[in-house]
Nucleic acid binder design. Sequence first.
DNA 1: AACAGGTTCAACCGCGTGTTC
DNA 2: TGAACACGCGGTTGAACCTGT
Length: 359
Amino acid sequence: MGRAPCCDKANVKKGPWSPEEDAKLKAYIEQYGTGGNWIALPQKIGLKRCGKSCRLRWLNYLRPNIKHGGFSEEEDNIICSLYISIGSRWSIIAAQLPGRTDNDIKNYWNTKLKKKLLGRRKQSSNIHTLSNQDPNDPHQPTGSDDNQFSQGLSNSAMERLQLHMQLQSLQNPFSFYNNPALWPKIHPLQEKMILNMQASNGNPNLLVQPLLPPNPQPANEQSTVHQQDYPEISNTKGLEGLDNCLDGISPSDGSVPFGNGDNLMDSTSTAAAVQPVSSFQGQLDVFLNNKTSTTGEYPQEDQMVNQLDCFRDINGSKDSLIWWPTDFDAKSASSNSWDSTSVLQSNGMFQDFELGYPM
DNA sequence: AACAGGTTCAACCGCGTGTTC
DNA sequence: TGAACACGCGGTTGAACCTGT
């Protein structure tokens, strides 16, 4: 027994809307509003359309102040930042861009932005592969390994993983794996590289940056996250664990990872749940606009990607990867209490977490 | 000019969630 | 309390359009 259809499919028109239909719908809503019932609306105005279709048409096209196309650089940055932070929550992302609809942003992402970002990653990887691959080296990662890895993840998670790796590789190619104890087997050369990096940076903890803790802590109380806080890290959940992390699934103990637990996403929990977007901006600029850092803060991408690639799991073990501590409460986020400006402009709470977050 | 392949985007579909009774 | 209903969301589809040959 399936779900009852929302309307009589046989008597409902589908496909593109005619100007007459648009005019009818627009005139009615502007005069009377939706009446709080989209299902009944088409009957009221004599449209042979499904109520859901009317709603979609109004929200995505007829509603006043809707913008189509012509996304600005700033909008690109916001979309990318939020996508990387919260994934494909298009309605939430759209809420941060006045005049944009979730559908529009979704289309824009899928057709343009994603290619723009992932394309660069691919390019870099290809260059790396061509220049560095040694067919005689049994430890070298293989394409099939990558494929296996990729296939185990949802597309969205994989995209976010790729994007995240891209951005991360710009800033610190090693912080991605923020706890050496959790890494899979490391090739001797990689180990040597780590030691060199630590020595050259004079920072023995370079590779042991803490993950974002399950609950916000004052900056001065940040500490290395223990494995028990992240069961996905230490056990053999492998890809499933990673995918779950990517998708922001709550811990199995049912605890609320961020915020005060009342599910209202105030600015505090927002800041905790969404990654430090502000810290993305420079990196996003580099990726989206081919900008070269004037401060030298962001190393050359290819170089860094190459270094990052060195840390791919060379033995095919997919366990122990975790880098997405965000647990985003979509339910809360969809409410009006989710204040994005604090996300995008915050310089207080985020900075606290930037220290703890392996970006 | 004609065709093929690629891209874009409006619209549809199914499902999860909230609300009402 | 739970069933029925409506809403909203994200994924997917397919027609229209674009571009290269």
